[in-house]
Nucleic acid binder design. Sequence first.
DNA 1: TATATTTGTTTGCATAACATACAATCAAAG
DNA 2: CTTTGATTGTATGTTATGCAAACAAATATA
Lengths: 156, 156
Amino acid sequence: MVKDRFADAIAPAEHDDGDIGAIKDILGFHIRLAHGACLRHFTETFTDLDLTQKQVSVLWLVDDHPGIAQTDLAQRLRMDRATTMAIINRLQAKHYLRRMRSDHDGRKQALHLDPAGVDVLAKAKTAIREHEAWLKARFSDKEVKLLLDLLARIHE
Amino acid sequence: MVKDRFADAIAPAEHDDGDIGAIKDILGFHIRLAHGACLRHFTETFTDLDLTQKQVSVLWLVDDHPGIAQTDLAQRLRMDRATTMAIINRLQAKHYLRRMRSDHDGRKQALHLDPAGVDVLAKAKTAIREHEAWLKARFSDKEVKLLLDLLARIHE
DNA sequence: TATATTTGTTTGCATAACATACAATCAAAG
DNA sequence: CTTTGATTGTATGTTATGCAAACAAATATA
């Protein structure tokens, strides 16, 4: 193991002792950093609207699929039921959406946007456009498509 | 049931009001989902070791740079000081590392791995290898390099 | 009918980001 | 030197999220 080198020196990947490479070579590490950078910029962009990524995603999906159930929402966003509950509760407390009992399945909650939710979603989409522009500024259109494809393979 | 979904849950998204595309076209959305999938698999892989991504990253960096200060660590991992504190505290409570006052700067904490930390890091690197294999299984070597490059552009 | 599954809910715990305030230390200016 | 300002670590509190476990209501299935 190479130790005690200068902090910013880049280690030549010379150790063929079966050991794993530097942390810089770990794909998961870069995914986490990229996500962090993305989240940070998102949060800045949405300070005025006071919405998180998850909350925007939920509003967006409820708008796209009026009457969607919490479980369906959870599956699409890869959340569990308890987490979904917390998010829906917060959005409902702000009167952005409401729960309505499903007609033909008493277990399900049919989610619908409230007027305030429609309003804030429109503003959110504008903010998302800015955020996406910031994110995509470093890529060509071809690279964006490529990145979308690669990322989709991870979460699908 | 298919019948239910038609009636209640999923409506064809018809309203293309000319603004932003579907949520599926949002790059940030896919980054978050990919990160979530990655984090979920990581957590499963590390249930026995009881370590998080952040904690492994910190152990790794402290091993690579013995005597590193918390601020330096924070900068490399894009965390703030308070968050770094919490993580260091947890690792110290497990006797994975220790704080030692820096010789030349009384403000800084020089971080060093304890024997238990060296031990658990070795196991962690094995687990990381598995995790990375799972992650990279869906890509060719060329695609991995490409993805690393694209992601680095986001967080650098 | 009896049993199993689904869905939502509640509670509790852990991680983590962030803000704020504070103390100790160091650096720089006078 | 002293004063001032910046850096570093620390303590505290808030918020968001994720997950597990337990429970109730409604539905599905044997």
